[in-house]
Design a protein around this nucleic acid. Sequence first.
DNA 1: CTCCTGTCCTGCCGGC
DNA 2: TGCCGGCAGGACAGGA
Length: 281
Amino acid sequence: MPELPEVETVRRALDQALTGHKITKVDVRAKGLRKPFPKNLKSSLSGRKIVKCTRRAKYALVEFDDENILVIHLGMSGRIMLHDKCLSYKPEKHDHLVLTFNNGLRMALNDARRFGMVFMVARDQMVNHDAFRELGPEPLERRFTGAVLARALAGRRSAIKAALLDQRIVAGLGNIYVSEALFGAGISPLREAGSLSSAEAALLCRSIKKVLKKAVAAGGSSLKDYKRPDGELGYFQHNFAVYGREGQACPGCDCNAGRTGGIKRIVQGGRSTFFCPQKQG
DNA sequence: CTCCTGTCCTGCCGGC
DNA sequence: TGCCGGCAGGACAGGA
């Protein structure tokens, strides 16, 4: 679910609300999500102070005043809600982990489908951890360039859509933003990944950065059960050019009146892809 | 290696 | 109104 812009929105909210504050209570309300929670989760969190909240790919990282980092992946349906001290808090259905802080805030990790992940990692072990070792570049960093992308795609026979979902190529894109980025670059999702020219890779790289930046600025997208931690809705979903818009015209276009019948939905690797055959021939 | 499929789990929506 | 099948933003294992 949550892709880079949504996780980044969560990260910012956590960083703002929780940095400098200490965990006074740890309520572990489930055995785990996708995997069991670490056995020492409660003891390693209790009494710890948050130093900062960061992000790598779709992982939110809560960094503490010891050597440990709490790693949270929201999976498909995960969300984090911050509950103000002024309001009485009753655990909601699927609140699996609830942290209380010395400023009165509560942080609840809620995940209906339990596809999410929670684990602890020592700061100096992070790069060696299975979850991070093979991750590709951060798309919003300067070192992610058209040339870097072209190199990662070289020789790949799979569709560019599938390649962009592969976190080893570039980290943080998911099903929604891949469709959006390909549309922005005017590249068909069906193209063989390794067949992109260097000019096309450069175009795609720029498009990825552009759509992610705009989505972050909008507070991410709210679809189904994803909400920002403050309970406000991200509103980037209103800016989707193609995602979920089958049969409609793509932006500034009358393609739904023409031969191609507007935005198409196809299934690649069991997942929906949306694109405009006219602009992404 | 790379690619492809199936699986984990619950909720919701549309169709009948 | 009620039931049921299909679908959902991700990651990973296992087999070809």
